[in-house]
Design a protein around this nucleic acid. Sequence first.
DNA 1: TTTAATTCGGACAATTTTATCCTATTTAAT
DNA 2: ATTAAATAGGATAAAATTGTCCGAATTAAA
Lengths: 153, 153
Amino acid sequence: MQCNQFLNRMFSKACEYGIKAAIFIALKSYQGERVSLKDIAAKINSPEAFTAKILQKLAKNNIVNSVKGAAGGFEIEKHKIASIQLAEIVDAIDGDSIYIGCGLGLNKCSEDHPCPVHHKFAAVREELKKMLESTNLEELALGIKSGASYLRT
Amino acid sequence: MQCNQFLNRMFSKACEYGIKAAIFIALKSYQGERVSLKDIAAKINSPEAFTAKILQKLAKNNIVNSVKGAAGGFEIEKHKIASIQLAEIVDAIDGDSIYIGCGLGLNKCSEDHPCPVHHKFAAVREELKKMLESTNLEELALGIKSGASYLRT
DNA sequence: TTTAATTCGGACAATTTTATCCTATTTAAT
DNA sequence: ATTAAATAGGATAAAATTGTCCGAATTAAA
């Protein structure tokens, strides 16, 4: 069935592109450079028009600044980079749903009325949440800068 | 964008239905009862025809037995119930992809050439994997039987 | 002021996932 | 044998996600 859930893909494609785009923009912003959609899509290996939609979301959520017109592009204020959590990017693109939703899709699932996997998954989800909230854009950008990690292929 | 990834939905719908169906079948099998697709769909609140496809996968993966004809239905051999891991059900439906795939969709992502979130996500994924592999159908079915957990609403 | 580079945003298209329909096949019971 | 109750499975449809196209708006620079 080739489903694209957690085991296959931790994030939606939109999220993947959004995270990588934000990292690249942060990296360039540290160098005082503004980057165009075209450059971003090329660097992170993503479809340009689709990436544009995602950047619009990041802009509307005040994660990146967009500048229209010639010599325009995207940037992030340097002083903000270290304070932007991975969780914020994910929330901007996928919505703030880390706190809600049942692992098995029950409409009503709580401590009082749990689904069969409620407690077991709560632990994993909590760990993911903590990780997203304790990871910021700065450290991810520094990883790229130092050559410790990569944005494509 | 309302994407249906981890934060929204840990599993695909297909997986959700498959897990719940397996739990219900296990529960009934303990009582020596075989259950029909119709009963399963009603109890787990899932679309019948779609659930049928998923049960076919579980049957082909030898997780459940299907019996055709009048008085047919689905069942799981009692002695197997405790040995069926959640991970097996997920694998049967979504494929064995827990060990592969990059959090950010890189084609090549490894210790040598990691994506920016490689190490952070590896930890979370590993925990999920362990949880799936250490949870079996029996305990989930017993939770339902004892009233400690629920399959719907 | 014109041009070129750029983002914005609406409409549309392709793909994947989810869901439905219908016929064939199997099997217990009459 | 016939019938009724089931699963199997192919074809199709609907919905969600992903991806594309294009004109409008904006802005720096010639």
